[in-house]
Design a protein around this nucleic acid. Structure first.
Length: 433
RNA sequence: UCCUCAGUAGCUCAAUGGCAGAGCAUCCGGCUGUUAACCGGAGGGUUGUAGGUUCAAGUCCUACCUGAGGAGCCA
C-alpha cells in the first residue's frame, strides 16, 4: 500500500522538526469546523495529528473528514513538540490517505459491559487499557525467560497432550488420541522431574488446561504456567527461589512497563513496597491466627477464600504459607521430617486481595514412600513407572513450583479480572472469539 | 454442582401496572486548539423465550434460555 518509510510512533521524537509519515489506525477524531485532530495509533503509541483547512488541499481535507474510528491510514506532515498534545508530540498534517475504511466500529468511546467487550475481544485489544495489559504480559513473559536464562536453567517444553493426570483430582479435558484417551496437560511438573536429573535446573512455560467448572474472576480453563524444577533444592531454598523470582519480575515490570502501568492508573507504590523477605507462616500458625480472628479452622481443613483474605489482610508483601496437612495435598509432596503430618508445600498469596499466585513443594525422592502414596491416592501405577524411574536411578532431593502468568499479570496491572490478562480468554462460558 | 443478581435501540442505561425514553455511536448542519470536544437536527424497538394474572404487563406470577458475580477447586 503506502507509507514504506513510515516512522514508528514510539520513535516519533527523533523526527522532531522534520517531515515524517505514520501508518496505523484512527483512534479518535475531533473536528472543529476548519480544524481537525486525528489521533493515530500504530501499536507502539499514539500521535495527535492536526489538519488545518487553510493549509491543506480540499482533497486532503475531505479525506480527513472521511476518516472514521479505526480505519487504517497513512498520515504525513511535520513533527514538532506540542505541550497541548497527549504524549507531547504533534504532527501538522500535509497529507492523509485512508487505506482501509471502518464502518460502524462496535466499540465506541463510552462505557461498555464486560460481556459485550469480551465478545469483541479481537477488537477490544486495540483499546488503550487492554493494549497496555497485554504489553505488560509480554514484558513479564520476557522477564520470566530472562530470569531463568541468567541463572543457567534449561528450558524444557513439556507435552500438552498427556496420557495421565498429574494429581488425579482436577478435572482434565479429554480428547481422542487415535482411538485412545488423552488429556490436555494440567501441569508440566511430572515431566520436569526427570529433566531435572538430566539438566539440573529446568523450567517450562506454556499453556495449561483445567476443566474445572470454576466461575470466578480468578480462573481460566486455559492459562499459562511457569514451572521451575531444581535438583538438590530443598524446601527453604524453594521458598527463597520463589521470593527472588517474584521480586525480580516486579522490578522488571516497574522498570520496563512504567508507561503502560501509568495508562492503567496502577498505584505502583504498592508494587514498590514488595521487598524481601516475604512473611512466612506455617499452616499450623495460620489456623492459630485464624482462630484468633474468629475462623474456627481445624487441622486438616483447607483454607478457603475468606481465610486467605483474612491472613493476607494488611500485608504489603506476599505471604508464604507452608507445611499443609498431608491429607489435603498432592501425592508427590515430601513430608516434613520434623512434623510428619504435614508436607513441605507452599502457597504464595499476593497482597491487595489477588490471592494465590504460586503453589509449590519439595518432591518425595524416596521410592518406597512414593509408591505408597500412589497406592493411597488410588492412582494407576503403570502410568507412573517412568516417573518412578527418577527415584530408581540416582534419586535426589528436588523441588519446584508453578506460577500462573495471568494471576501475576493481573496483580501487576491492578486489573479486576484474570480474563483481561490473556489475549483470548477461555472460560467456562466463553470460547469465542 | 450450589447460591445471588441481571437481560429494554448498535452500546450504556431510564421508565409508580397506564403513550417505549435519554446519552454515546451513525447520518445531516454549525464551530480554527480539541483532550471520551461541544452545539442543533434526524433515523433507529418482536422490552431474552414461552405461558399466565389483569380493562391494561418492560413492570406482577411460573417455567425455560443466556450471561455475570460468588462458593467449592485451584495457578
Amino acid at each position: 500500500m503506502t507509507g514504506k518509510d513510515a516512522t514508528s510512533i514510539s520513535r516519533i521524537g527523533e523526527k522532531s522538526g522534520s517531515e515524517a509519515a505514520v501508518r496505523g489506525w484512527l483512534y479518535n477524531r475531533r473536528s472543529s469546523g476548519k480544524i481537525q485532530f486525528l489521533i493515530v495509533r500504530d501499536g507502539t503509541g499514539y500521535l495527535q495529528t492536526v489538519v488545518a483547512k487553510s493549509e491543506v488541499s480540499p482533497e486532503t481535507w475531505a479525506e480527513a473528514e472521511r476518516a472514521t474510528q479505526e480505519c487504517s491510514l497513512v498520515v504525513s506532515g511535520r513533527v514538532r513538540e506540542e505541550p497541548r498534545a497527549p504524549g507531547g508530540w504533534e504532527m501538522t498534517v500535509t497529507d492523509v490517505r485512508i487505506l482501509g475504511p471502518s464502518e460502524n466500529y462496535p466499540i465506541t468511546p463510552k462505557e461498555h459491559g464486560v460481556d459485550f467487550l469480551m465478545s469483541q475481544r479481537h477488537l477490544w485489544m486495540r483499546s488503550s487499557q487492554q493494549h497496555a495489559v497485554l504489553r505488560v504480559r509480554s514484558e513479564v513473559s520476557q522477564a520470566i525467560r530472562d530470569f531463568f536464562y541468567e541463572r543457567e536453567y534449561t528450558l524444557i517444553d513439556s507435552p500438552i497432550l498427556t496420557g495421565s493426570s498429574v494429581e488425579g483430582t482436577s478435572t482434565l479435558f479429554e480428547t481422542d488420541y487415535f482411538g485412545e484417551k488423552a488429556y490436555l496437560s494440567q501441569s508440566g511438573q511430572l515431566y520436569l522431574e526427570p529433566a531435572a536429573a538430566a539438566f539440573g535446573k529446568v523450567y517450562c512455560f506454556g499453556p495449561t488446561f483445567r476443566a474445572e467448572k470454576s466461575k470466578t474472576r480468578r480462573h481460566l480453563t486455559e492459562f499459562w504456567m511457569i514451572e521451575p524444577e531444581v535438583a538438590f533444592l530443598e524446601f527453604d531454598g524453594l521458598c527463597d527461589l520463589a521470593e527472588e523470582f517474584v521480586t525480580y519480575l516486579i522490578a522488571r515490570t516497574l522498570d520496563r512497563s512504567a508507561e503502560d502501568l501509568a495508562r492503567l492508573e496502577r498505584d505502583t507504590s504498592k508494587l514498590e513496597a514488595v521487598e524481601r523477605p516475604f512473611p512466612r507462616i506455617t499452616y499450623r500458625e495460620g489456623i492459630e491466627r485464624l482462630a484468633a480472628k474468629g475462623f474456627p479452622i481445624q487441622f486438616g481443613e483447607d483454607l478457603g477464600a475468606d481465610e486467605e483474605t483474612a491472613l493476607t489482610e494488611g500485608n504489603s508483601r506476599p505471604l508464604i504459607v507452608s507445611r499443609f496437612p498431608t491429607a489435603i495435598k498432592s501425592f508427590y509432596m515430601q513430608p516434613d521430617p520434623e512434623d510428619p503430618d504435614v508436607v513441605l508445600g507452599l502457597d504464595m498469596l499476593a497482597p491487595e486481595g489477588y490471592g494465590e499466585i504460586i503453589g509449590g513443594s519439595q518432591r518425595i525422592h524416596d521410592l518406597e514412600l512414593l509408591e505408597r502414596r500412589l497406592a493411597e491416592h488410588k492412582l494407576p501405577r503403570e502410568a507412573y513407572e517412568w516417573y518412578l524411574d527418577v527415584r530408581r536411578y540416582g534419586t535426589f532431593p528436588h523441588s519446584g513450583f508453578g506460577m500462573g502468568l495471568e494471576r501475576f499479570v493481573t496483580w501487576m496491572c491492578g486489573t479486576h479480572h484474570l480474563r483481561e490478562a490473556i489475549p483470548y480468554p477461555r472460560t467456562l462460558k466463553r470460547i469465542y472469539p
